[in-house]
């Protein structure tokens, strides 16, 4: 006799099934799988050139699979940072408003379940789908790479890749939550999809331009002291870090390139005497800890916003 499932997992199960069966998901997974295979191909053809003598990352050949590129096609990491938001938005933009428009929302919520079950289950369901998909892709890339280059990854490389997948899932979860929030706020699925894409475009295209403009306006004169120039650099970098994609890029490059020691400007004084050797995983994680915290915080804020507005929403039929 199987035991009776909690309603929460019943909804999660239905959400996962809906996602996996939907055309939308099949299209998204096809786009992402194709681009990943493309980037894997360029990485494999260039992996010989990517390793230079005396490269501190040279011992991490396997990680090059994810970062190497000859400039014709972006690397795996760049693809994820570009397409990840699309995946998150695609799975979340009609989470609540489509149920409302179909008239199923009031029917489901009049069942003996807590109201937050529905929104939590929508989030968990989509997150499971995203997590499984990203993990599968990364493992596939590793598998193909293993066949092609014939060198197995070390434990350190493997754990770095797993960390990278973890960060990617958090990054996609941020966009997922944002789109769920818009799906609560806007009645039409098209409006919420547009709003999400607008935010995504803003951060991936316009935000850099705006930061550059600000940068030009406040740039220190040529006569400025080193201290002023450094603080200006730091300020600009922090401005850029408001974009989630920036945080994601910083976090993943550090994780996948063990030789990256700092994400801010370093003076000659600080570098002087440092041996150009890769950092251990623990130290790399320390370097990106603020980025990780920032990403998780942004995700949690979006979720809290959608949670609060959903709990207060009045549920009318259609």
């Amino acid at each position: 006799m199987n035991k009776i499932q909690s309603p929460f997992w019943v909804i999660v199960r239905k959400e996962v099934a809906d996602h996996v069966r939907s055309w939308r998901f099949i299209i998204l997974i096809a786009i992402i799988a194709l681009t990943c295979m493309g980037s894997l191909y360029t990485a494999l053809t260039n992996i010989g050139a990517a390793i230079k003598p005396n490269d501190p990352d040279g011992s991490f050949l396997f990680l090059k699979l994810f970062t190497a590129s000859d400039g014709t096609l972006p690397s795996f990491v760049i693809f994820i940072s570009f397409l990840g938001p699309l995946l998150g938005i695609g799975l979340g933009f009609d989470a609540i408003n489509s149920e409302q428009n179909k008239g199923t929302l009031s029917r489901v919520l009049s069942q003996p379940i807590h109201r937050d079950y529905l929104i939590n289950a929508k989030f968990v369901g989509a997150l499971i789908v995203i997590g499984v998909m990203l993990l599968t892709l990364a493992l596939l890339v590793m598998g193909f790479g293993l066949i092609a280059i014939g060198i197995p990854p070390t434990a350190e490389e493997f754990s770095r890749i797993i960390c990278f997948i973890g960060v990617s899932i958090v990054y996609v979860a941020f966009w997922l939550n944002l789109s769920i929030f818009f799906s609560i706020k806007f009645k039409q699925a098209a409006t919420s999809a547009l709003a999400c894409i607008a935010v995504w475009l803003f951060f991936s295209v316009f935000y850099n331009m705006i930061v550059n403009l600000v940068g030009k306006a406040i740039s220190p004169s040529a006569m400025a002291s080193t201290y002023q120039i450094i603080s200006y650099q730091k300020f600009m970098l922090n401005l850029l870090r408001f974009a989630p994609s920036m945080l994601f890029n910083e976090a993943t490059t550090t994780l996948l390139m063990p030789s990256v020691r700092s994400l801010g400007p370093l003076t000659m004084e600080q570098v002087h005497g440092a041996i150009p050797s890769p950092l251990p995983l623990g130290q790399s994680l320390m370097v990106v800890w603020p980025q990780l915290t920032g990403l998780i915080a942004a995700t949690v804020i979006c979720f809290a916003l959608s949670y609060a507005s959903f709990m207060r929403k009045e549920i009318r039929s259609r």
Partner: peptide, 20 residues
Amino acid sequence: PIQVREKVGYLPEDVGFYDD
């Protein structure tokens, strides 16, 4: 509300179902 909804069935105006 949960205990109430265990005992009460509600048919909303123009009820909707999962189409697929």
